[in-house]
Design a protein around this nucleic acid. Sequence first.
DNA 1: AGCGTGCGATAACATCGATACATGGACGAC
DNA 2: GTCGTCCATGTATCGATGTTATCGCACGCT
Lengths: 238, 238
Amino acid sequence: MDDASDSRPGIRERIIDAAAQLLKEHGTSAVTTRAVAVAAGVQPPAIYRLFGDKDGLLEAVAEHVMTTYVEAKAGIVDAAAAAGVDPLDDLRAGWETQLEFGLANPDVFRLLSEPSRVLNSPSAAAGRRVLEKRIRRVAESGRLRVSEQRALGLVQAGGVGAVQTLLATPADQRDPGLGEAMFEAVLAQILADAPARGADDTVAATVAFRAIAPSLTALTASERQLMTDWLDRALAAK
Amino acid sequence: MDDASDSRPGIRERIIDAAAQLLKEHGTSAVTTRAVAVAAGVQPPAIYRLFGDKDGLLEAVAEHVMTTYVEAKAGIVDAAAAAGVDPLDDLRAGWETQLEFGLANPDVFRLLSEPSRVLNSPSAAAGRRVLEKRIRRVAESGRLRVSEQRALGLVQAGGVGAVQTLLATPADQRDPGLGEAMFEAVLAQILADAPARGADDTVAATVAFRAIAPSLTALTASERQLMTDWLDRALAAK
DNA sequence: AGCGTGCGATAACATCGATACATGGACGAC
DNA sequence: GTCGTCCATGTATCGATGTTATCGCACGCT
């Protein structure tokens, strides 16, 4: 019945919750063994009895957050497979969930992205398995034009990179369409049937002109400034 | 004459080199103020006098490694611009350099990728500026079908994501083609299929844009009117 | 009942980032 | 030449953190 790790009143859970909350609300540096201990109402040694060391605690936190977050994902995957939802819509839903999660929980996301942790972490493996299922469904539909491994890597890299790039940009300067653009880039690379993106000549011409506009000496500085502002606005609207 | 930061025999450099070597050879955890101090043959307080705090030291290390690595990049960019190398080949060369660097120096790369550091780090800004130049050259050639900002974000995200994904995979299970696949995915997303007319000089780009400017629905009628007036004036001045 | 096993609490240890304070020497003023 | 001032260096230390040893106690097994 009861696992050995489950003592009585869920002390383990209390510690994990306290650590997760501390991590989410006050950042990585606030997650100290003592702070977690007092927040959970236990003594520092309890952490070491239950998790071995601090890294074990962080791994448990990662697994907890990941599970909480992935359970929905996994449920959606299964439900989608059963309901016959388009695998691509399913993949896109997962992508958006991951981006939202990453932007909402930067510290937890960083924790889950650390290569040293990902390499030997059961929770990371679980997360990857969910993504593998989604990729597999796309593959089974016959629309993949690269290996599943390649597709998996591209989706993973695109997601991690997009989140990290957005997090590394001041919130007011972020490109809100970056995530979707990256997803489309990955899709176009792994799908057999080309999404047939319309070759938009106007955008290309606008971008090219935007690049050389600052060198138009026939205009005044303020005119150039105003014009580039308009151009950026026009491009952002695309 | 002598700057206050430059005492006598390059103590600053000795400390930075010691820290960089420690970081590269023994990982992040080995970079401790005392270890750096003994490795550089100085006293712990010296670090604080020269760098303020440990984060200042890490920033200096990041800047040093970045500079050493980027100097070649920047030189290549300038040389490429002068020699008229294909902007795409130039971009690809930078991409490959970044991937190699990230895989060869995982800890330094992680340091340089930390969002909190990237947000207010001069060295990170310098690195981004190099990439901006490369993107700009592509934009000037008229081959970009998205905004420069979007292109920049996609290249950045793709590179960071690819490196991080590769680092998070056991070396013997890595997909050696992932980096190139990601690059192609990004390229396909940001490039116009057709070389978009021979708009490699300002006049051609301006003429092309002048032709499509009236159809920019994102601008108001008066803005379009004023802009086309300016465009005509700029063309007349040529 | 006796006893052992395991859990919780207190205290302590080693190390880390960071700093206060004393020391000493170099340079200019007289 | 001598003294005083300033600044860099060196020592010692502080607070905090990860981690562990030790003790006491309650619970279950024989």
